[in-house]
Simulated assay, not measured.
Amino acid sequence: MSRAGLGLALLLGLLTSPALRADQPTQDGFVYLDQVLKSARYEVRYAGADNFVGEPIDGYQKARIILTREAAVALAAVEKDVALSGLALKFFDGYRPQRAVDEFRRWAADPQDIRQKARYYPDLDKPALFRDGYIAKHSGHSRGSTVDLTLVDSATGKELDMGSPFDFFGPISHHGTAQVSVQQTRNRETLRQAMLRHGFEPYGAEWWHYTLKAEPYPETYFDFPVQ
């Protein structure tokens, strides 16, 4: 067996070990990402008030990232990949309960609630969030193999400059935009290439958003809480 194959076999063994099963999500086929990755950082925005809604989101009872086993295994390979360049992964979101998506829809339909507009969508009105694909009836996150992430310096934990912050809604967050600098473009491309090499595909409007191509539940939208 190759070294890569051996590493994958060891990881799959970890994911099915009795110790791991003692602390696992309520839904079969899912794992806590912090039990799989070694160097990742986490800032689970929707478990607190630091997000575009401005309050904790329904379904996020703990500040942890849950994903399908397949997505977690693929991200372990991404983690090893970027570590060769002195980088680590930082996650903002993973699996997202359908109830959270429903809350986003209710928020987006309320024209009076614009408390976070200046920070997250200063150049857009709320109806544009639906039109431009930032808010939808269903989210790939609810299928369990989509992540929102960035890169950080392994030594300092400082995020690489991507030109716009996570969840900033507007053209500057799109892949291929001319609104960011050469270095910011390179940073985005470093993340994109690492994710592509290990089976993820990007979402064009959000530099931080990736979905596992071979996701195990492509037609299922889950609603169990993050707890």
Score class of each variant (00 low, 15 high):
74 A>F: 08
113 D>V: 13
226 V>Q: 07
109 A>D: 15
206 E>Q: 14
177 T>L: 04
140 G>N: 15
9 A>P: 00
193 Q>K: 14
192 R>T: 05
105 R>M: 12
200 F>H: 06
96 R>T: 08
9 A>D: 09
83 A>D: 10
220 T>H: 09
142 S>L: 14
82 V>C: 11
147 V>S: 01
102 D>M: 00
3 R>A: 13
155 A>P: 00
22 A>V: 04
166 F>H: 13
90 K>F: 03
210 Y>T: 06
161 D>G: 07
25 P>D: 11
61 Q>H: 11
80 K>L: 14
113 D>P: 02
220 T>I: 15
91 F>Y: 02
137 K>P: 00
191 L>C: 03
89 L>C: 09
47 A>R: 03
5 G>W: 01
59 G>I: 07
14 L>Y: 05
37 L>M: 06
4 A>M: 11
9 A>T: 08
62 K>T: 13
58 D>T: 15
141 H>F: 10
77 A>W: 10
32 Y>I: 06
39 S>R: 12
86 G>D: 05
173 S>Q: 09
196 L>A: 13
193 Q>D: 11
158 K>A: 14
200 F>A: 12
85 S>I: 01
111 P>D: 01
45 R>W: 02
12 L>K: 15
119 R>W: 05
154 S>W: 09
198 H>N: 05
144 G>W: 05
208 W>A: 10
36 V>L: 11
34 D>F: 11
28 D>Q: 15
25 P>Y: 05
161 D>M: 07
134 Y>G: 08
1 M>C: 07
163 G>S: 11
203 Y>N: 09
115 R>A: 15
55 E>F: 07
22 A>H: 08
105 R>G: 09
18 P>V: 07
60 Y>F: 15
43 E>K: 08
124 L>C: 00
214 A>Y: 03
175 H>C: 06
191 L>Y: 06
136 A>Q: 14
59 G>N: 08
101 V>R: 05
76 A>M: 06
118 A>V: 02
39 S>G: 06
176 G>S: 12
182 V>M: 10
9 A>R: 12
102 D>T: 03
122 P>S: 12
72 A>Y: 02
157 G>R: 01
89 L>Q: 04
155 A>S: 14
39 S>F: 00
141 H>M: 11
100 A>N: 08
128 A>M: 12
84 L>Q: 14
40 A>P: 00
73 V>H: 02
160 L>Y: 07
10 L>S: 11
93 D>P: 00
80 K>Y: 05
2 S>Y: 01
70 E>P: 00
147 V>C: 05
143 R>T: 15
20 L>R: 15
34 D>A: 11
72 A>V: 05
183 Q>E: 15
149 L>W: 03
96 R>F: 12
183 Q>A: 14
102 D>W: 05
79 E>K: 06
149 L>A: 12
